[in-house]
Write a protein that binds this DNA or RNA. Structure first.
Lengths: 159, 159
DNA sequence: TATGGATAGTTGAAAAAGTCAACGATTTAT
DNA sequence: ATAAATCGTTGACTTTTTCAACTATCCATA
């Protein structure tokens, strides 16, 4: 995860190591941009006692898609046991509930309580602001292009 | 980090949760694509007893830019103490060396030995292949656009 | 030119995150 | 019916992250 993100608004990178060939590596660029964004994101979400992880679980619970824990784990690239811990905490806070899958009683469908939804709406707005800050160097169309390419890389043209 | 990446070539995502609004979130997309790529990257680098982290340190040592450990830490978004451990291991393997900064004797400049360079060249090729696999859904110009946008988001138009 | 405050690297401890194997309950296939 | 597979859960274990010291060195300035 990240370490330093400039706080002062007037500071510029001037990164000498930008010239290293590794800065042409997509994996490195993804990691670095994600690291910087994570700091901002977590900072914004802390106001709601959420982190990136719990926020994304809460988001899926609010999607109306009735995801099972297993589906959440796969979608978020997390181990199923980590989902258990995240949901335990959100459930304890009354933000989400587990319900047995109607069609498969092994599975548990996670959905949001009204409290969870209310919190999510507010957190979502904060996360949007944090994203804007992280991508401040790009124009709106560039951001759209970037997201489109990321989605295509992940899910193909159907995204 | 990631958990599952399909091994069979014929498998498609068909991810039901793609429809959740969080899949429009740049932070989430960056994290997910990075997670998938990391698995492939680490898999490829394991043949050289390297991981993403040690590979990127080795890459900077091979950049000819004479980076200090502090500069590496900032560039790689890592804590300085993590750099110490990474370099300790690479130095023990004879791949890099520490030299006192000519101009600031507190700082240590990390550079590659010939053995380190030889290993890096081979690892670099493997990493390139892994990246291609991770971005297989994109065309060459799309990959160039993606990298350009990532660089611009990180470093501004000067990138 | 000495003295105080900052900075580079290092160490070590503590917290968080990730990995993995096992288990009970259920489902699916035979 | 039985066997194999899957879902959530737990617990153990490893790795990564975070942070506060500490020494050595640099820098500012009185």
């Amino acid at each position: 995860m990240a370490t330093e993100v400039d706080d002062e608004p007037g500071t510029e990178p001037a990164e000498k190591l930008m010239a290293a060939t590794i800065s042409l590596d997509a994996g490195f660029l993804l990691a670095k941009l994600h690291a910087g964004g994570s700091v901002l994101n977590n900072r914004a979400l802390a106001a709601f006692d959420l982190k990136e992880r719990s926020y994304s679980v809460l988001a899926l619970a609010n999607s109306g898609l009735e995801p099972t824990q297993r589906e959440m784990a796969e979608f978020l690239s997390l181990d199923p046991s980590q989902i258990v811990a995240l949901i335990d905490e959100l459930e304890k806070r009354g933000l989400v509930i587990r319900a047995p899958g109607k069609l498969d009683r092994r599975a548990k469908i996670v959905s949001s309580t009204p409290e969870g939804e209310a919190l999510f709406r507010r957190a979502e707005a904060a996360a949007r602001d944090a994203e804007s800050a992280a991508l401040a160097g790009l124009s709106a169309p560039e951001i759209a292009t970037l997201k489109g390419l990321l989605r295509k890389a992940l899910w193909g043209p159907a995204a």
